[in-house]
């Protein structure tokens, strides 16, 4: 494990997918996806429902397994059966559409739990960091609220802080605004933008085209399990080349 760790250097892609294939039973969802992401890059994956976007980023975090190809995260082979999952989880943070906070823990406890219980860090230090993170996602004063007492947008920001508490190098965002009320979407997007501006490597699956255009370094459009088209946002949105991209963009813009 230490060997592969050493091999990766910052000039190599931090996440690298090669010909990733996956199917649920006989239904193929990923039909050979290849992409490279450099450290500090922000990429957005867009595409119609059921195009495999969510599955793709869940595979990067080993929440789903794959049937072919390879995924390297900082030189770690994600789907190596001998992989130390904890090593991967420390590098990759994930935020879900449904926030998935632990309902029996306060906001602060949610943020502190993994570093204390999983990484066995000193609770006092973790608490200091957790309070900073809660301030960072602009929720000071909500430390002792339970998830059930927070709005969707607030819960989602706690979830972001919870992931950041593990000090990941890469953050995955799986349609994190899809379940939110329109008025709270913005506060979550601002939080993500702050993160991107600080140089966090971010992979987002999103339906917010305006946000994607503003924040992404690179856009990937997927349909039926393949990457149809990709490029920097300016060109991608101005001159889509593939008819499927054009059709999709005409529907959502």
């Amino acid at each position: 494990m230490a060997m592969t760790d050493v091999k990766w250097t910052a000039d190599q892609p931090i996440v690298s997918l090669k010909d990733v294939r996956k199917s649920y039973g006989s239904v193929p969802v990923l039909n050979g996806i290849s992409l490279d992401i450099m450290k500090g890059e922000v990429i957005c994956i867009i595409g119609p429902s059921g195009s495999g976007k969510s599955t793709l980023i869940r595979c990067i975090n080993a929440l789903n397994d794959i049937q072919g190809g390879s995924i390297l995260v900082e030189g770690l082979e994600v789907h190596d059966p001998k992989l130390d999952k904890l090593a991967l989880r420390k590098k990759v943070g994930m935020v879900f559409q449904q926030y998935n906070l632990f309902p029996h823990k306060t906001a602060l406890q949610n943020v502190m739990m993994a570093p204390v219980k999983v990484l066995k860090e000193n609770p006092a230090e973790v608490e200091k960091r957790a309070r900073e993170l809660i301030r960072k996602v602009r929720l000071e004063g909500k430390e002792n609220s339970y998830p059930g007492e927070l709005s969707g947008g607030q819960q989602q920001r706690v979830a972001i802080a919870r992931s950041l508490a593990m000090r990941p190098d890469i953050m995955l965002f799986d349609e994190v605004t899809a379940a939110l009320d329109p008025e709270t979407v913005k506060e979550v997007l601002v939080t993500i933008k702050d993160l991107a501006a600080e140089g966090m490597t971010c992979i987002l699956v999103t339906h917010e085209m305006g946000f994607a255009r503003e924040v992404a370094d690179h856009i990937y459009f997927t349909d039926k399990g393949v990457i149809v088209e990709h490029g920097p946002p300016a060109g991608f949105f101005a001159n889509p080349t593939d008819p499927r991209t054009r059709q999709f963009l005409s529907q959502v813009l």
Partner: peptide, 15 residues
């Protein structure tokens, strides 16, 4: 079990 990828918004909601 892995969620059904064909259904949009497939994840369980914490209701």
């Amino acid at each position: 079990p892995e969620p059904d990828a064909r259904v949009p918004g497939h994840m369980d909601v914490l209701l």
